[in-house]
Amino acid sequence: MKDTHLAERVDTMTQLKISARHVNVHYGETHAVKDVSVDIDANSVTAFIGPSGCGKSTFLRCLNRMNDTIDTCRVSGGIRIDDEDIHDRKVDPVQLRAKVGMVFQKPNPFPKSIHDNVAYGPKIHGLARTRAETSGIVEDALRKAALWDEVKDRLDAPGTGLSGGQQQRLCIARAIATAPDVLLMDEPCSALDPVATAQIEELIDDLRQSYCVVIVTHSMQQAARISRKTAFFHLGSLVEFGETDRIFTSPEDPRTENYITGRIG
């Protein structure tokens, strides 16, 4: 059943990147994500929206198995990336996370220099053999994150000394530097001011060309501005998933409509 479903999708214009089937997540006694199935396309931006505590961030953290790091958390169901089951015994989460990058809600640069922050991923994954190669990767990542011009003269300055928006772009550069296919973003703008938010949104729009971007956001406007598809979560369940334009103009589920019109959330 599942395989035929996948086969159909591969034929279509957009390529399928991630497919999740019947994913459930339990935190101890709490059932945080309930039976979520969703397909995410490559080279596009997909937004997860919903009121806080609806499980959207938890589900996002399943996609690079970050939930493994929490003792009490149990994940069941199937998640396939490039048609490979990420829970397969042969899959090493370390390799998975190199392929699926993540940016967090609050900017979390390491207490190291800007250069070392970006070079960290390539270093541990052995992506560069020489110092020159490393500098190349760092520059490339900083350019893609639209930070290069602001920091190129002070690559040795501590990453923690940058402004909030710059720190977040540094974190994006850090994630890009490991050459991932997928970029997960967990409310990347919630700690930033409007100007910095606009910069990040512009950046995400550029990143769409080369990455599969999945973004969790609190802000419906943001989802509407940057994503092609939107998934609406409520109380741990995926309520509705579809083209962003359609979700915001003619939602099928009354709960989605209530949320969009501001009655819940």
């Binding site: 490039d82 042969k90 899959v91 090493d92 390799q95 392929k99 994954h125």
Partner: peptide, 12 residues
């Protein structure tokens, strides 16, 4: 740029 195998199922 990278010598990483693209399948997750194979450990390099």
């Amino acid at each position: 740029m990278t010598a990483r195998s693209h399948s997750l199922l194979v450990q390099d």
